[in-house]
Design a protein around this nucleic acid. Structure first.
Lengths: 160, 160
DNA sequence: ATACTTGCAAATCGTTTGCAATACC
DNA sequence: GGTATTGCAAACGATTTGCAAGTAT
């Protein structure tokens, strides 16, 4: 019966040429669909919401794997890696590299930047229009700019 | 006799509280001192030099290790890693993270940014004053901005 | 003399791969 | 049925660690 909720996700996968397998759907749901499936619904109410955007997640393969297993949707870690890369190539995700050793995957694929909390390794989106990049030097001969990443690295402690 | 050339490097290490050991000096020389020690001097002449800055290097631990060995200054890879991190903590180097899996170390510790050639994994400095960051959002409560990294990712191919 | 450094080899971590079993169209 | 996908376990590359032997002050 919960099947019906997946139709949108199924469409989305098909559109990018990926077969909507059980594991891809489970991962897509965790990534793109904020509402829980059969876990206890988290109490709503806090969140003085500004933007109504579904939910921007910054997640590692390991974290997503844990979530899937925890949600009763066992998926092998190898498949999580495969899927994350396939989603990224398909433009459903964006890979964010801020720390040596591990990659984050961002469900927000619009033009934007990041705060990075070095203390706890958490990422926070900065809307693209909230940073103005002036005087960007032109790309060197024979290359083109594919993307500009701005990472504002934060440490604990107040002001200066 | 070549000993005399190291006095400046020795001072530099002492100033940051690191004993000037043989291996740290060898690595410091490779990193900070452009002129070769006893290898055939590379033909000068090309380089239509704009700024006279010694030499900005973007190097991985593995690369530096190879250079040291190749220069007849064998240093263990573990020591290269230790040293790179010590130099970084001491403010002599800056770690640059652009690719999952490996870290680059930048001898330029002034305020600046980077071009990153995704094709060949090479980095190129962008002087700090060549990019204007306007409207930087303020750091979230309880944190302070430690650094802002701008990475201009380049792909092969001309313009758009 | 003593504390700091080094090098080795093993351990660790995140990630990738080969390949047989399995699921989708 | 045929191809795409999965899962496992092994392989991998970069980096780190423990610890005995060596070195700077």
């Amino acid at each position: 019966m919960t099947e019906r909720r997946y139709t949108a996700l199924i469409e989305r996968l098909k559109q990018v040429g990926l077969r909507p397998t059980r594991q891809r759907l489970a991962l897509a749901k965790l990534l793109f669909d904020p509402s829980p499936t059969e876990q206890a619904a988290p109490p709503s109410g806090g969140e003085a919401g500004g933007e109504p955007r579904a939910c921007d997640r910054h997640i590692t393969a390991e974290q997503l794997h844990d979530e899937a297993v925890g949600a009763g949707q066992p998926v092998s870690l190898a498949t999580v890696y495969n899927t994350l890369h396939q989603f990224t190539e398909a433009g459903l995700l964006r890979e964010v590299v801020v720390e040596p050793g591990r990659s984050y995957f961002d469900t927000n694929v619009t033009d934007h930047h990041h705060f990075f909390f070095e203390g706890n390794g958490r990422l926070l989106d900065i809307p693209g229009d909230q940073i103005q990049l002036a005087d960007l030097p032109s790309a060197p001969e024979g290359s083109r700019i594919r993307r500009v990443d701005v990472i504002v690295r934060l440490a604990d402690g107040e002001a200066d």
